[in-house]
């Protein structure tokens, strides 16, 4: 895979220092019949090469919409991006030309979807679809593209790749299809991969295989990885740092170990507490009361306030910033932030 040309190209681009992807104050809205749904309301995050950022959130939290905005695959309209920057290697993708952006997408940033069956074209063989990537972007011959396709399939450990290269997507099992999706994302050796719920549709025993493969390949290619998921278990297994999203905002950021040990936002804490634990057997589970808000009518102040056990008047009046989180003595905790007026109480309460 690593031809001399590729390597040279990589080196030429290497000098850029700083995060690979830097999202700043991103807003995304959807115009619907019933009004404007504010799906993303000021999201900041960044990913460096070799790093895994997990974006954790429930449906409607804006985690997938953010990813689609980064990829530039939002349907506009109904979607629109009133504000924000998405910097890839320092350059804002929202202001650059269409053609330039198209080159980044797929070549530099690739995406893995939850539902591999609908993301693959059912009437083309997987070998053709994989090879097409090389033919379109690298201009290789048909035979070469096929060879590359087999090589990729072997790389994601699809058994008997040579025999199966001409098979169609439906002839593969769910786990194998997700591997093909990964192979497709890897084909052009991108710098960043965005994986949107990559294992949600898979069985647990297969989930483990696919997650392991993804983590391994990420390390091998030194890629940045944004893992979008609702599964606290998957996050704990592979992430370096976590951003928790709620109603279109990041409510907490933290390195993975710290988040699980000492959450600093009541929502994160509620999520962790509602996981069934052994010592709770036979007792009522902790449940966050209420429902995620309707994006057409996000509650004023902190969006979580109607469900929050700590909510005070200030929470209903003001939107909290993402405050830096520190130890009790004021020692800063690197990479930690919480969008809660009472982060101190939440953090030190345990």
């Amino acid at each position: 895979m690593n031809t001399a040309v590729d390597t040279a190209k990589r080196e030429r681009e290497a000098p850029y220092e700083g995060p690979l992807l830097d999202v700043r104050d991103l807003h995304v809205e959807f115009v619907t019949r019933d009004g404007v749904a504010k799906a993303v309301n000021g999201v900041d995050y960044s990913v460096s090469a070799g790093e895994t950022l997990a974006v954790l959130g429930e449906s409607g939290s804006g985690k997938s919409v953010t990813a689609q905005a980064i990829m530039g695959i939002l349907d506009m309209p109904p979607a629109r991006i009133p504000r924000g920057e998405i910097r890839f290697r320092g350059r804002d993708m929202l202001t650059m030309g269409k053609e330039e952006r198209r080159k980044i997408r797929g070549q530099k940033i690739a995406m893995i979807f939850q539902d591999a069956l609908s993301a693959l074209n059912p009437v083309l063989s997987v070998g053709y679809q994989l090879g097409e990537m090389f033919r379109a972007h690298r201009g290789v011959s048909r035979a070469e593209a096929r060879e590359k396709a087999v090589e990729l399939m072997e790389r994601v450990r699809i058994p008997a790749a040579k025999q199966r290269v001409n098979d169609y997507p439906h002839q593969f099992s769910g786990g194998m299809r997700q591997r093909i999706m990964i192979a497709m994302a890897l084909a052009l050796e991108p710098d960043l991969i965005i994986a949107d719920e990559p294992t949600t549709a898979l069985d647990v025993t297969v989930q483990a295989q696919v997650m392991d493969l993804l983590a391994e390949l990420q390390a091998e290619y030194n890629m940045g990885l944004i893992l979008i998921t609702h599964d606290l278990g998957v996050v704990a297994d592979v992430a370096d740092k976590i951003a928790v999203m709620y109603a279109g905002r990041i409510v907490e950021t933290a390195p993975v170990h710290e988040l699980y040990a000492r959450p600093a936002h009541p929502y994160t804490r509620g999520l962790l507490d509602s996981i069934p634990r052994l010592d709770q057997k036979g007792q009522e589970l902790y449940a966050i009361k209420g429902l995620p808000p309707n994006l057409l009518r996000i509650p004023p102040g902190c969006a979580f306030n109607p469900r929050c056990p700590r909510a005070q008047d200030v929470c209903r009046a003001e939107v909290p910033d993402l405050f830096p989180v520190t130890e009790e003595d004021g020692t800063p905790l690197e990479g930690r932030g919480s969008a809660c007026f009472f982060w101190k109480e939440t953090l030190h309460d345990r």
Partner: peptide, 10 residues
């Protein structure tokens, strides 16, 4: 109780 609150939101 949780469900009730939920309805209020909805």
């Amino acid at each position: 109780y949780a469900g009730e609150q939920g309805m209020a939101v909805e």
